[in-house]
Each structure stands twice: as C-alpha cells, then as structure tokens.
Design a binder for these strands. Structure first.
Lengths: 221, 221, 221, 221
DNA sequence: GATGAATGAGGCTTCATTCAT
DNA sequence: CATGAATGAAGCCTCATTCAT
C-alpha cells in the first residue's frame, strides 16, 4: 500500500517490485475469497497492474498460488524447525511457546487463510493439494511429532501414540484458523484467540478430569 | 429413505418422492464437490429428473442446500439433545458416548461433508452461512457447553471455562470430518478414526503430562 | 438460411434441427476462415443461437470439427468406394468419371475447404490431424491405389508404382481445392476448373511428349 | 549466412547483422508453426534479442514476413529465370532439371514451408497474400509457362494449353512441399521425395496409358 | 407438473504492439 | 540502439437460471 519508491521512476523499479506486489495482492485475495473464487483480474487490479502483466510473472493461477505459499509459508516452517531443534527447556514449555509463537506468526496473520483455503478446496484442485501436502503438511506433522517424542523421551509426557496425538493436537490449532475465516460474519460472540489458546494448552496438558485416576477403563481397547 | 406413501398409487408416490430423491442427490454431490463446485445439472441428472424440475421444488441452489441441511442434519441435533438431557451416568462416560455416537451418525457419514463444506465456503455465501450458523452451529455449541457444565456441576470435571473449552473440544471432532474430505488423495497413511478418537478422548480427559501437578504457572495469566 | 419450419413453433423443432444448423454454420466458417481463426461465437451467431447453446451439442471446438467431417465428408467416401467397386468399363474412363465426380461432389463444394483447412493447419492441431488422417486421407489413398491397380491388372495402364503415382495424381486434385481457397482475392484470371481438370486428365493419360518413345533414359535411375 | 562485414569492429558488425539474425529466426518459426501461430516473442528470443528490438527493424509482423520472403525466395526466382533463358537442350530435359533443381533449392529446404504457409493462411491475411501473389506466384507461373511454350514451339511437347498445364504441373510440386509440413506426425510411411519426383516426371512426360492412341475421345469436349 | 433448450455473464489465458528508460 | 515491462482485446469454455411447450 505504502509506496516508498517515489525517488525512483515508476517504471524502473517494477521489475523487482512487481512479483512482490502481485504476491501480496494474491495472498490478500486468496485469503479473502478462497482459491476458486479469486479472480486473477482482481489480483492484478489490486496490485495496480493489468490482467496480462500477472502472466509475465506467473504461469497460471496454480503457480501463483504455489508462489504465495513458497514466499510466505515455507520460511516459517524452516524457522520453526530451527527453534525446536535448539530448545533446551521442559517440553510442556516448548509446546506452550510453539503454540503461542505459531499464533503470532501464522494464526493471527493472513497466512491462517492459506490453511483454511487448502482444507476447503484441496479436493477440487488435486495438483495444488499435492504440492501443499508435500511442502507444508508433511513438514508440519514432523515438527509436532518431534516435539511429542522429545517430551516422551525426556519423561515429561505420558507414553502416548505420537502420530495420533499429532492429529488431535493439530486440530484445535487448525480450527482456530478456520474459524477466523468461516462464519466470521455470523459470530455473535467471536472467539478470543488468547483465551482459546490458553484453554487449549491447559486442557492439552492437564486433561479434563478432576482426579488423575481415570474413571474409564474402556480406553485401553 | 423411509417411504411413508404406501397407500398411494405408484405414479403419485413418485411425484411426492421427487424432493427426497433430489435431496439425496444433492447431498451426495454437495459432499463430494462442495457447494460452489456442485452443478445443478448433475444434481438433477443423479436424481433422474431434468434440470427444470429441480426448480419446481427448490427456488435456487441456496434453498436446495438449506433443505438438505434441514432434512439431514437438524433431526440429529434434536436426537442428541434428548439423549443428553436424559443421561444419568458419569460425565466422562457421557462425553465418550457422545463423541462415539456422533462419529457413528455424522462423522462416519456423508453428513460430515456438510460440516466440511460449510467451514470451507461459508465466507463466499453469507446467506447460507447465516442459516447454517443459526440452525446448526449455535445448537451444537449449546449441547457441548451443557455437557461441560453438567460435569463441572457434578464435580466430575475441573472448573474450566466451558465456552472456551467447547471450542477446543469441538475442534478435533470437526477436524476429523474435514480430513475425511481434504487431501484424501494425498494421505500416505490415512487416519484411523477409531484410534484418533480414542487418542482424543484420552487426551481430553487426562491431558498430556505425566504428573497431575502442572509445571507451568504462566497458564493463569 | 431458408427456414421452412414456420408451421412448427420456433422452439419445438430445435432439438432436431439445431445440430444440423450448427454443423452447417460451422462448415461455412471453418471453410471461410480455417480452423484456428473460426470463433465459436461466430458459429453460434451464424446458426442463430447463443454461444452457450453450441456447447449443448458439441463438447468443444475439436469435436465440432470432427462432427462436420463425419457429417459431410465420410458419406462421400463410402459412396465413392461403392461406385468404384461396381464399375465395369475401361480404367481410363473410370478415372475420368472419378475425377469429374469428385469435382462435382467435393471440389466444387464447400467441402473442398475442409481439405484445404486440414492441409493448412494439421501441424498446429495434432489431434484433429490424426482423426482426419485416419478417417479421410487413408481411405482416399486406398481408393485411388485400387483404381490404379485395377488399370494395371487389366493391362490398361502402364506398370507403374501405384503408391507413388497415387500421391502424384492426388496432387492436382488437392491443389485445385486449395486454389479455390487461397489467393482467391488475388487471382487476376481465376482458374477454370473444367479446363483445368480436362487438362489434367489429358496429361495424366497421355503425358507431355509428342512421341511415345521417351527421350530420357535417365528416368530409370 | 555469409558475413560481409569483416572490416568492421565486432560490435558494429553485430548491429548490422541483427536483421539477418531476426530474419533467420523468423524463417525458422514461420516455417515451423505458420504465420498466425508464430509469436514474435519467440522470434526475438530465437534471434537472441528482445521483443522491442524486433520492432526497430520491422514495422510489424506482416513486414517481417515480407522481408523473409524478399530475403529468401525472390533471389531464387531470379536465378531460375536466368537458367531457363540460357538453356539449350531438349525441353523434357529442361523440365527434369528444373524440377530437380527446384527440389534441391526450395522443396528440400525450409523454404518449402513458406509455400505451404501461404497456401494455408493467405485467406486470413489478404495484404500478405497480395504481396506474395505479386512477387512470387505470378513470377513462378511465368517461368513454367515459358518452359511449356518453349517445348511446344520446338515441337518437343504436344500442343497443349500452357496456362492450364502450368497449374496442373505446379500442383504435384507444391503438394510435395505441403506434405512435408502437413500430417508429418501421422504418416505411417512417409513420402520419398526422390521416388515421388521421378514418378511425377515419368507420368508428366509419358502419361498413364499403355498405348499412345487414347481410348477416350470425350477429352476434346 | 415436467421438460430441456437456450441464455449470457464471467473466468482463465494469449499475444501483437507500445513506450519509458 | 536496445530493452522488456505493460497493455487490453479477444477467444474458449462453464453454469445458474429462465421459460415456452
């Protein structure tokens, strides 16, 4: 939006700036409307260029979307991987920081819309789905499973099935993103992400029961 | 499914059965492809009628969808409300039965696709979203919150914020439905719903930590 | 163009008549402008319908073109095959009748434009080219080769290589069609097809030389 | 191809070589894809310059094409005219040498693609068609007619209508060029140009019949 | 009631040409 | 001279909705 390039002539700077401007516009619109409902005309218009210009930089809609993901999402995964590998404290604290850090950098950002979009439309765009699955979902799963295994190995977590728990734990995180982009016009009392996350962390770590001794034995089956 | 028209002659029965056949076809296709991507041609074709006929029974795509929800989802909510109100046992057991019963009647059914569809496309169809929010989501929330409050009131659950916990608890349930309809072609190792649900119930009730005494005091903030 | 259906209501007759009207319009425009340069909008407009209607009857441009060929060209090939198989006279006379008959039914018709079109654009539309080659060109070649072999077997033609001669003989026939659709605006003195064909038949049967003894021995190499 | 700029420094040579490089690239692509389907981007890219540069040397696509013809085709016509005017032998031998020489210099060359292209697309580009007709076709016709008249005048050819025969004789020559560029992906057994040409010369000179006395009198009509 | 032919706006993509630098 | 970013008209195809019969 801001245009700090006034000292340069309008035209010369474009080669470098255009892709970024287009990616920013594309991110906005993909997040706002979804993949199928985003018209490339509108992306171009929002970036302040004509329809044809977009095709100078991105082969087609699919590649534009992939570029949005590469530009915005993948770096965050790398960052997360590094942080976790270097962490020294209690696994519960790691989880807490991971979840809150994720919220700060993704959940509370336009990027949450990408997650929502892919959950919503992967079925209709298999190529895009495959790309996203391979580049984002697989890596995300590995990150969480690694954290769980770390906690179990250090005796800080109960011995649970990390692969299953990964899915269960992901769910509230993903859902918080989805709610941000679903029924946003309908929520009488919108979710407070902070309270939601604290509630989630609390439940995740302590469970629901008052007494640690479970009243249900059927769980073992 | 049920056919309460036995007393009428066949051709007349057929006439009154039309809406049911259309609703069944619409359910199938909405679930398979989503709202926007479902073509009314295909709905009519799958129901064995012409496209024009569809418009005799349903004003437009939106009303068709609403009718699908009314026909298939709302009765299940009423049923759930009744069961819960009449339950006498431990709240943990109620939760367990609720979750597994939900899986049996919705999650493991085409109906899960409706949930997924609404999460995915509500943003692009505000009218539909409002309808679904008012008729389904609000009522679902009330059901779960009532169960939580019951557990707290009976001293079986910790004193948590039921409104927040509702969201957190819903999340893995909803996500299990979404995964059934997202990246289904990409999953190298598909989720086992049973294991997932057991893991969820276990975590929900017991939490993640080995010791009941939480190592994190920052939770209170 | 003429509309002899006034007694029927406009709407009812369409189902039967539409494909034919569309095929006629498509033939006209394909012949006039070529494959790539023919816009489906124009085909529809010339048939008096909207763009979308065309797609009710033909999947896409390629299928429309194939249908034009199937409707207009293939029946003529069948007819030619029958005539030749039943012919009893001298092979020179058969050739003469074949060529003049071809001129009457194809060359002097819009259909000549199809031949021209395929020669012109097969390279850019491989799928269409394959179809046309398999359905039309191969069969045409077989027809002419059969006539040549017949003449040789009956001692009426010299013993020549029928496969090669087929190509050589086809050439003036095809070229006459091509000229009709190429440089038609440039021809100061347009070709007279009848004179051209007589000249061709004469040359084909008698050759160019005054004396039957060839002055060139190098031909054998 | 030849580089007559050796006396100049390299960078200046390059400047003057630009049009040649562009023409070479244009020839390649026009021949490969046709007139309409050739994109000027590709021409510029193949010549190693930017798209804008192309417009420094050629006003537009049409002028570029004309320049390709002027550069590559017209010199060959002049050469042919000279050879024929200076020929002393039997007209049959002249024809033979003309045809084989044409094959060597045009037919068996990229240039054949120009002929094919003009036959294919002249209808959609009247300006180009007029240019090509005036500069190439008319002159070619004159050349062949002159050879026929020479043969008749010297008593070496039968007294035929040279103007018509010109067309008939051109046809197999042109068609051989067209086949090189049409259905090239479909040909199960591709044409051998040498055999084709020998067959053509043989038929042209001797005709098809076994006996010189024609069995058909209807030819005179 | 039932039909299904017809519509036409709208979306993705291409490419000859222009022009500021 | 040379560049190459930008344009925008145009073409193929889809699909919710209408309506004459």
């Amino acid at each position: 939006m801001a245009c700090p390039f006034k000292s340069k002539p309008r035209w010369e700077r474009r080669k470098e700036a255009r892709p970024q401007e287009l990616l920013a516009a594309a991110l906005d619109l993909f997040v706002e409307r979804g993949y199928a409902a985003t018209r490339l005309d509108d992306v171009a218009a929002q970036a302040g260029v004509s329809k044809g210009t977009l095709y100078l930089y991105f082969t087609n809609k699919e590649e534009l979307f992939k570029a949005v993901v590469r530009e915005n999402v993948l770096p965050l995964l790398s960052e997360a991987e590094e942080i976790i590998d270097g962490y020294a404290g209690h696994s519960a604290e790691l989880f807490r920081e991971f979840i809150l850090g994720w919220w700060e950098r993704i959940g509370n950002t336009k990027l949450s819309g990408i997650t929502k979009l892919m959950m919503a439309e992967s079925g209709n765009f298999p190529e895009v789905a495959k790309f996203y699955h391979d580049e984002v979902i697989s890596r995300s799963n590995i990150i969480i499973i690694r954290m769980l295994d770390r906690g179990i190995a250090r005796g800080e977590f109960r011995k649970i099935n990390a692969v299953q728990a990964n899915k269960v734990i992901c769910a509230p995180i993903i859902m918080l993103m989805m709610w941000k982009h679903s029924f946003s016009g309908c929520q009488t009392e919108p979710i407070s992400p902070e309270e939601y996350l604290n509630c989630f962390i609390d439940l995740l770590l302590h469970g629901l029961l008052t007494a640690p001794s479970a009243p249900l034995t059927s769980m073992d089956s």
